[in-house]
Design a protein around this nucleic acid. Sequence first.
DNA 1: GACAGATGCATAGCTGAGCTATGTATAGTA
DNA 2: TACTATACATAGCTCAGCTATGCATCTGTC
Lengths: 160, 160
Amino acid sequence: MNNEITSTSTATRSELSELLSDLVSVTNRLTRIAAQATGESTSPATWRTLSVLSSFGPMRLGELAKQSRVSQPTMTKIVANLNEVEWIRRIADVDDARAWQIALAPKGIKALDEWRDRLGSALAPLFTDLDHEEIDVISRAVDLLHECTDVRAADVVKAA
Amino acid sequence: MNNEITSTSTATRSELSELLSDLVSVTNRLTRIAAQATGESTSPATWRTLSVLSSFGPMRLGELAKQSRVSQPTMTKIVANLNEVEWIRRIADVDDARAWQIALAPKGIKALDEWRDRLGSALAPLFTDLDHEEIDVISRAVDLLHECTDVRAADVVKAA
DNA sequence: GACAGATGCATAGCTGAGCTATGTATAGTA
DNA sequence: TACTATACATAGCTCAGCTATGCATCTGTC
């Protein structure tokens, strides 16, 4: 059995790329656990979309597609669904009759909050053994990841 | 614009569940970035499967399904595909004629390594601004996440 | 100010991952 | 031996996401 990287704590990694692929692997796993634990029916892309709106405020459908990292037709569908359940509102763009501003609606804010709760509650049991300092490490890491993926990320991949 | 959580660094989180949902959100995003940047054609579940085999060694198809967090029929498909490209081998179980041991083949090890490289290379540019200490924080966080998701996770969700 | 090309969103249709339900063969057990 | 449980395979469905394309509107050039 070859337990190289995936083993346990304080693995020493020589390369940044090694760290990043580990990160993606482990969080991929975490996401799967969360999905199964919550029996989530709404797609990840939908939550990404709501998160983006929550973070950056109303924006055009196309822009939203880029930020949420889906194609424009996919975003058209997502927005249509979100509109039906009234989690977002479509606001006509006064400057451009082709465009819409997509805004988070109160129900959407509520849904996003509840999702965060469900997710947190489902995963929290896995992390009960961690002490305060370890929680803090993860917290700082999440902050760093936010910084690194927020805006500049858009430019790295096939610049918009 | 309501930049509460997703904003920038050193967000203070009152709840563990808040941290965890942030973590899932941000890594979900990261995974999307990686997928688009590498133009990945192989499914995440396939990489999870190979990772599991790499970490824990050969195991039965059913066990592999649980560890990779997919249904057994899905794993049957994944294994069939992996077998065709010779990334794994099927070894008849001597004790049970119904069962197979699934083992990582040399080509699979190679493919996994290459995937890690691609992933790392694609994401590394996002992280160039981080200093050594910050990288270390992420590294420790990844280790912690490994610990918390490895084995016990299986029990949390609808105990196998 | 009219036409050409660019841009924003919608629609059509496809692919592929993952699921549930079920089938088939082998194990275990009374 | 027969009955149930278990391991994997098969069938068929659903849904997310994609590309290609259509339609409407905007922008720039002559």
